[in-house]
Design a protein around this nucleic acid. Structure first.
Lengths: 238, 238
DNA sequence: CGCAAGAATGCTGTATGCAGGATGATAGGA
DNA sequence: TCCTATCATCCTGCATACAGCATTCTTGCG
């Protein structure tokens, strides 16, 4: 289960070479071991390689990732703050299981955030931004047409994240992203059945149309309906 | 600045002694060093003892708190995930400064959460729960009458947290609490002037009345107005 | 045969050690 | 005098070491 996980440490990554002005220079993002581990472990949990309720063995996981316990533990604390794992005194970290209640609650919060984002986006977003979201949607529809479920799903998530970003409220977008990532696994397995899938696609189409018309209330209503439907779709996989 | 901070380690704290059934036994909450440190450092930041933009010196702070660097660093990672500090590779932890933009964005998210909580609370909360929130409000008014600003402020925060709890959505309440704690310092210093203070009090009174009438829309509207006013009140202290 | 008490093992929680990079000081040159 | 380059110091990031508590296995007793 934990084979071939070793972390590859990357040095600094100088991008943005040909910038002519210094105003828009993005700081060199050097990937630290901490970030790398946080991302990696988060994926292990979301993708189900670390099962809910299971204890995380620091020694084993550390060895599998090729890292000592110290940075690993630090990454675990970080993830605990995100709510993905629980720290049990004396027994270490346990992967948190989402109860139906948790999922329902999180979807309600997600709805509150997305409808707020929707209203803001209808006011603030530029035509170009809306057009780029439309492109993302069309791309998604392309993957839907050929039933490429994973690729479709990624665009789907990106679409919702993009909508949050278009609100112009970075904090909202970040909060939204945090919740969405925690629900990712459940939503993925919940979109399994073709009928469910089709429903979600139709709702997305409506959302794009409402956004293009900058009809905030209609967009908010569709989003609320979409997330209500999501709840129905995921209910039997929790 | 960092004198007399030493952490006192507490052993297990057996509460809930006289429980007759085992159903409602709450797990013994033993305060771990980790939790203690997280709480302590969070307070140091919120109360302004660790200034924004300033680097956190692991050695110094660890010595001041009477703790080695390891648990301290773990606590810092945890707080970084909450967004209170920023981890700069090679330079350690830096206390994050909230820009006006950040505060504005956070207040908008807070508004989205509280209005949602308000609607849910109007449906779901019991009369007893509403009454207890009323008592909290009255208590707050008492402190207002005698101009006990700190005590008043604590009840104020508790009131908003209580409203979030009454939504019955634990995740919403937790998310709300996280944001509220990050805004605590700014809101406190922002409620300095008597005129501002009086305005906030009046809005609270309206909120309680709307909640008692279970008038969800009116309550949501008051909350939105309250947070808009908060923005005005805090604007010049950022 | 089942249960309980005790010992042994293993894991977590915390401290310490060490290497590499960042920061600051000092000296040399323009 | 100011700027720059080099060096010394300090701090962070990671690894390792050790103590104490959980868990599990075993053994003795009912």
């Amino acid at each position: 289960m934990l084979g071939e996980l070793a972390v590859e440490r990357r040095g600094m990554d100088v991008s943005n070479e040909g910038a002519s002005t210094l105003d828009q220079v993005v700081p060199v993002s050097r990937r630290t071991l901490h970030d790398e581990l946080v991302g990696r472990i988060r994926d292990l949990i979301i993708e189900g390689h670390l099962a809910p309720e299971s204890r995380i063995h620091e020694g084993q996981l550390g060895q599998a990732l090729g890292v000592s316990r110290t940075p690993l533990r630090e990454a675990l604390k970080f993830l605990a703050s995100e709510g993905l794992i629980e720290l049990v005194p004396g027994r270490g970290a346990v992967v948190r299981r989402l109860t139906p209640r948790d999922v329902r609650d999180m979807l309600d919060v997600l709805a509150a955030l997305e409808t707020t984002a929707a209203r803001l986006a209808c006011q603030r977003a530029s035509d170009a931004e809306i057009a780029s979201l439309r492109r993302l949607h069309d791309e998604m529809m392309g993957y839907y047409a050929v039933r490429a479920r994973l690729e479709y799903f990624k665009r789907n998530q990106a679409f919702h994240a993009g909508l949050a970003t278009l609100s112009g409220n970075a904090f909202l977008a970040a909060t939204h992203e945090g919740i969405q990532s925690r629900l990712r696994r459940i939503r993925f397995v919940g979109s399994d059945a073709p009928a469910k899938w089709a429903g979600a696609v139709a709702e997305h189409e409506e959302m794009v149309l409402a956004l293009e018309a900058r009809d905030a209330e209609r967009l908010a209503a569709v989003i609320a309906r979409h997330l209500e439907a999501t709840w129905v779709r995921v209910q039997d996989v929790i």
